[in-house]
């Protein structure tokens, strides 16, 4: 049974559909990269999977005993966060809240989990720093650790490399790869970086208002869409 199954799902905003005819299944341990240009419905699809938005038609099914609260999420950064007075460890710890239910205080176990997540991402030395004083890459590291606190099974990432320089971006992709391989966490990443997607992911979902392709990376390179997109990527460099 797949962790997430989309059956002819359509998502959108008031007065418009952003993406329709989405059909895919994501199984445990896979690394799915959702590709597409700006406005192709990638982020809307993520919100649909997170139930922040209900599908206009079709269904999103969580399988394999995955509960809604067990999904980790790395949203795009907002303006509010850029100058937020928060300790890095405070931020990571807040990832444990969903599982905590109504208990008011953090337990020792929560703290241990936060520590483990931060250490896995080589970010332990950031723990006492102020969030707004961290570099873009360090902030993403902290937010990724927070997302890891919220999940053991599935991580959704929304353009994690936005605004990062190439070297930091590479490091971030390696961290995500590490989470996927070492922890066995399933990854669903929204991105428009085709080359990185082909390099790291196991599966590709290509959207452009509707679904253009879903399958393994190897198959993607053989299709018309894939060739065109990959070609563009190469030309752009």
């Amino acid at each position: 049974m797949a962790l997430i199954t989309c059956e002819t799902a359509a998502f959108g905003y008031e007065g418009g559909t952003a993406v329709r005819d989405v059909n895919f299944a994501l199984h445990g341990g896979e690394y799915l990269c959702v590709l597409g240009e700006n406005g192709s419905g990638k982020s809307t699809l993520l919100k649909g999977i997170l139930r922040l938005k209900s599908p206009q038609s079709g269904r999103v099914i969580l399988g394999d005993g995955l509960r809604q609260r067990e999904i980790g999420y790395l949203p795009q950064q907002t303006v509010v966060q850029k100058d937020f007075p928060a300790g890095a460890f405070e931020v990571v710890l807040s990832g444990c809240l969903g599982a905590r239910g109504i208990r008011p205080f953090y337990t020792r176990k929560d703290r241990q989990q936060a520590e483990q997540s931060l250490r896995l991402l080589d970010g332990w030395e950031l723990r006492n720093r102020c969030y707004r004083e961290l570099s873009g890459g360090q902030q993403q590291r902290v937010l990724l650790a927070r997302a890891l606190c919220a999940t053991k099974r599935l991580l959704l990432l929304d353009e994690p490399a936005a605004g990062l320089d190439p070297i930091v971006t590479q490091e971030l992709y390696q961290l995500i790869q590490r989470i996927n391989c070492e922890r066995g966490v399933t990854i669903l990443m929204v991105s428009h970086d085709v080359n990185a997607a082909v390099q790291h992911a196991s599966h590709i979902l290509h959207l452009q208002g509707r679904q253009l392709f879903f399958g393994t990376v190897r198959d993607y390179a053989q299709t018309q869409v894939g060739k065109r997109f990959l070609g563009e990527g190469v030309n752009a460099e």
Binding site: Q68, L97, A147
Partner: peptide
């Protein structure tokens, strides 16, 4: 503030993450 401090922090810092984790 005493009992829901963590949640107030989460909702203030990042509302969409908070929603996604079921707050």
């Amino acid at each position: 503030y005493l009992f829901f401090f963590g949640k107030i922090f989460a909702v203030t810092f990042d509302e969409s993450f908070a929603r996604a984790t079921g707050i």
